[in-house]
Nucleic acid binder design. Structure first.
Length: 340
DNA sequence: AAGCCGGGGGG
DNA sequence: CCCCCAGGCTT
């Protein structure tokens, strides 16, 4: 980059003029920046905004969050996905109360020590909340940077991110840190998208990909692994006006989430045999509600949903309408199916 | 370095 | 329907 100061000024001017009004941009309050960045991991902005607003309303301070019950925090995260993040956010709030006197740590190493806070999130908090010159590379910044310097490296590799940091350092040094971080991300979100809008880009005179007409071929990324497919029979067991739900194990996929009873099987008879092991008394009035396909990062669920009536069960039953605990999206789709 | 961990949007 | 997107932890 020939003129970092010019770059910084032009990027900053663009940002001030075009930045979106986002609920966590009304302040530099570290708790708000932290929460928004945790929610932003692997999640699109439009999805997280209502979650952010509800979360701050329910848990207005780090202290309120730290003192909240686990299931209430998980419920506030319900539908956002990657539920370990909810656990980490809760644990980090408790660590801040217990080890930092309730004050958000300002030191990069202390930020990295918080659960769920990695290189990206630590640098984002460090720069946005505390205006320190740490370089945060998320998917948006990686795309912008790959084009800016016409990098053909795989943007998912950690070595590529290190290389990007060395390229971005002079630009960060010439900038107001919190502006640089947010402006780079905003440019990626609004202009330097997968389909680049170079005509309205403030950086096109600095962009090597644009100058050499490679912007549509960048960035490079490695392809994803094939997903494993699994079929389950899900039994929605009605007892009066209640349904049977159970809680998943505390580790692994959808940890601690509630769900209808499901058994891995491609065959209804086999599913019913497994069900008969868990339920006492007759199982009757089987009615198929259809099949739900649910795609995770690394696997695909095919859920064959069967509505049944039973007279007794060793499981707990709940009213779905007032159910206070978190359920996965896959099983909330089943509730929708019941109302069709 | 590779595998595990959800959900949403666009074509 | 299929394809694309995207951080951190663990091993």
């Amino acid at each position: 980059m020939k003129n970092p100061k010019k770059f910084a000024n032009e990027l900053s001017a663009w940002y001030q003029q075009h930045k979106r009004d986002l609920p966590f941009r009304t302040t530099h309050e570290p708790y708000h920046i932290f929460l928004s960045e945790m929610m932003a991991q692997q999640t699109q902005m439009d999805t997280l905004i209502p979650y952010f607003n509800r979360f701050i309303k329910t848990f207005p301070t780090i202290e309120a969050l730290a003192n909240a019950p686990t299931q209430q925090v998980l419920k506030a995260w319900e539908g956002l996905g990657y539920y370990r993040r909810a656990k980490y956010v809760h644990e980090s709030a408790q660590a801040i109360m217990n080890h930092h006197d309730g004050n958000f740590p300002t030191d990069l190493q202390a930020l990295l020590a918080l659960k769920g806070v990695g290189d990206y999130t630590a640098a984002a908090i460090h720069s946005i909340a505390f205006n320190k010159p740490s370089i945060a590379i998320d998917g948006n910044v990686a795309r912008v940077t790959a084009r800016l310097f016409a990098m053909h490296d795989d943007i998912l590799k950690t070595t590529t991110k290190k290389k990007m940091k060395t390229y971005l350092e002079p630009l960060m040094k010439a900038s107001e840190p919190r502006i640089f971080t947010q402006a780079m991300m905003e440019l990626g979100a609004l202009v330097c998208q997968k389909e680049p809008r170079c005509a309205s880009c403030p950086l096109k005179t600095h962009c090597t990909a644009y100058q050499t007409n490679q912007q549509h071929r960048l960035p490079n990324r490695s392809s994803l692994k094939a997903k494993q497919e699994e079929t389950y029979f899900v039994f929605v067991i009605r007892i009066g006006d209640q349904v049977v739900l159970r809680q998943r194990p505390s580790e692994g996929l959808l940890a601690n989430m509630y769900e209808f009873i499901q058994y891995r099987s491609t065959n209804l008879n086999d599913g019913l045999i497994q069900l008969a092991n868990d339920i006492e008394g007759p199982i009757k009035d089987l009615k198929s509600l259809g099949t739900i396909k649910h795609v995770f990062t690394h696997k695909i669920w095919h859920l064959k949903v069967i509505l049944v009536d039973a007279t007794s069960t060793p499981h707990k039953t709940y009213h779905l309408k007032t159910f206070p605990y978190a359920m996965s999206k896959a099983h909330r789709k089943i509730i929708d199916l019941m109302h069709e």
